[in-house]
């Protein structure tokens, strides 16, 4: 192991240990795990009843000697939709809080200049801090995943198979990358502000725009969302009619798509929904096809995260190595 790797691992361990000692973080984690459990519980109870209905249909069809039995329209992984949505919203806030704590803790304890007085480069500091935070995030995501899977199995009476487990793994891996990007945002905004709490406010403002406002604008601009129950349904048009009419709205649809594409949260949502069978149109297809369909979202997720990581390295490089007057 090279000296650089050793230093990065040491910094990552320091970050991990410090983060898990924070009470506010524990409270936020508690909220996330509780709401995940409740959302999956609610979905699983409903699912168990639908699964029982389907099983009764299969039994009746088998008894009556039917050769062709309709496949189940149910998808166990879709029960995790609420869990993914909570990661998208609350998970991002937790990641920002982690990033904020990384900088404010070192500032308050005046340990940042101490660390920088050692032979540690800004790149090693950024990488070590990010790896430690990713460790915390991975632990959190693993806990919510286990809670979700156990709820689906025990309450929904449908344990996931190996293929579903792989898809779920990829969905949660995307969650870690997504939260990692918000960690970088929280750390950058805090490090760039003289008063750490102001940096936190700026990061939360960006979170508000990226996670809530841009997807909301995109959803609201959707022509079909203009009337309760759907505009095209109200006009008595089916899918073909809708597609035909939307050919007259290409510029409008392009603006709507750009608005949604600007949001990192929307890319995470699309990918995680594809991996958890939330959208019915994705259910019949295998994993390579799904990855091909969502390659744009994967690309954006990686691009946003890489850009924010580069920003973190740059910000840490520009941090003063000697204590500055006051932390206001």
């Amino acid at each position: 192991m090279s000296d650089s790797t050793h230093r990065i691992i040491t910094l990552a361990r320091h970050e991990y240990r410090s983060a898990v000692r924070s009470r506010i973080l524990i409270v936020l984690l508690g909220i996330l795990v509780t709401v995940t459990a409740v959302s999956v519980y609610i979905a699983s109870v409903d699912y168990a009843s639908k699964l029982a209905d389907y099983q009764a249909y299969v039994n009746a069809a088998t008894t009556s000697g039917l050769d062709r039995i309709a496949p189940s329209p149910l998808a166990a992984l879709s029960l995790l939709r609420g869990a993914m949505e909570y990661i998208e919203i609350i998970g991002a806030v937790i990641a920002i809080a982690l990033g904020y704590l990384t900088v404010s803790r070192e500032r308050t304890n005046r340990t940042l200049p101490l660390i920088r007085s050692r032979p540690v480069t800004s790149g090693e500091l950024a990488t070590g801090s990010l790896l430690g935070a990713l460790g915390v995030i991975a632990t959190l995501v693993a806990v919510t995943a286990v809670v979700g899977i156990v709820c689906v199995g025990t309450i929904g009476h449908d344990w996931i198979n190996a293929t579903q487990a792989l898809k779920l793994f990829l969905g949660y891996l995307a969650a870690i990358v997504y939260m990692g990007a918000f960690y970088c945002l929280g750390a950058i905004a805090t490090a760039k502000s003289r008063v750490a709490a102001n940096g936190l406010m700026i990061a939360l403002g960006i979170w508000l725009i990226v996670v809530l406002v841009l997807p909301q604008i995109g959803d609201t601009m959707d022509a079909d969302n203009q009337i309760p129950g759907g505009l095209f349904k109200a006009l008595g048009l089916g899918h073909d009619g809708e597609a035909q009419i939307l050919t007259h709205f290409t510029t409008y649809e392009r603006i709507r798509t750009w608005t949604e594409e600007a949001s990192l949260a929307k890319h995470f949502e699309r990918f995680s929904f594809a991996m958890t069978d939330v959208k019915e149109r994705y259910r019949p297809f295998n994993l390579p096809w799904l990855l091909g369909q969502t390659r744009n979202d994967i690309g954006w997720l990686i691009a946003y995260s890489a850009a924010l990581y580069a920003g973190l390295r740059r910000t840490f490089r520009n941090q003063p190595t000697i204590p500055q007057g006051g932390t206001q």
Partner: peptide, 25 residues
């Protein structure tokens, strides 16, 4: 600030899911 944010998250997203089954989005 984070505690206030936590309260906002609970009021805005968590309570509606608990009482009316409304997903966050």
């Amino acid at each position: 600030l984070l505690s206030a944010m936590g309260a906002w998250l609970v009021i805005t997203f968590v309570l509606p899911q608990f009482t009316s089954g409304l997903r966050p989005t």
